[in-house]
Amino acid sequence: MINPLQPIGAALIGITQTAGRISFFAGNAIGNGFLGPFYWRQLWRQMVEIGFYSLPVVGLTAIFTGMVLALQSYTGFSRFEAESAVATIVVLSMVRELGPVLAGLMVAGRVGAAMAAELGTMRVTEQIDALSTLSTDPLRYLVFPRLIAGLVTLPLLVLVANVIGVMGGYLVGVHKLGFGPIEYLNRTFEFLETQDVVSGLAKAAVFGFIIALMGCYHGYHSRGGAQGVGTATTHAVVSASILILTANYFITEAFFSR
């Protein structure tokens, strides 16, 4: 007879092993990366890829989210005559939560998948082996610049997304809901605190690191040709998305729990 706890135990062992392997991979990449040489060209390329080329998709997500937030909070708050809180709700929601989380999820889909596909293809076509034979550490050349680029660039991207999201709320608030422009902007900044912005940017930095780590880990270890690369890409996006949502809770608790 099969012990019902056996599959649960096996799953837990599997998760722990994977977490260990990912931690070891990240530790090796960071440790080797700091030893140098440092590949600035690779870092710049990845920063452009993550930051600049993600701007349209993140910007569109942010502006519509800000607009919907203004509409939803207005219709909801009007039930107890608290319409004046719309601007505050929009800015706090964008800066603390929706800016970093939505940007993180969009970038995970766009950049995390691309990283896994690129490294996966390099693995199955022996390009990673070729790097080693050219006396170049693949972790230092491929992985470390991506991790740093994710860590540094996503906060910048989220900062822009926050501004665009607030602007979306402003457009709806002023042109559709009848707020005065000065009144709306005053309300926007009235209750906004430094901690709100800092917590959002800290989340973005962690999410950027997670996206790059998942993309690199799954791509680097892909096996078995085109199908293996496809599987690696799927795993990279799914695992990054789940980890972003999980990390979001713990970072929020660290910043805001009393």
Binding site: E126, A130, T133, S135, D137
Partner: peptide, 21 residues
């Protein structure tokens, strides 16, 4: 040690393994 040793090596891969980017 392997990285240093590989400076003595050149390698032609079956698929050439050129860096696409």
């Amino acid at each position: 040690r392997l990285t240093t040793l590989r400076t003595k090596f050149g390698m032609l891969f079956q698929s050439a393994a050129l860096f696409d980017s």
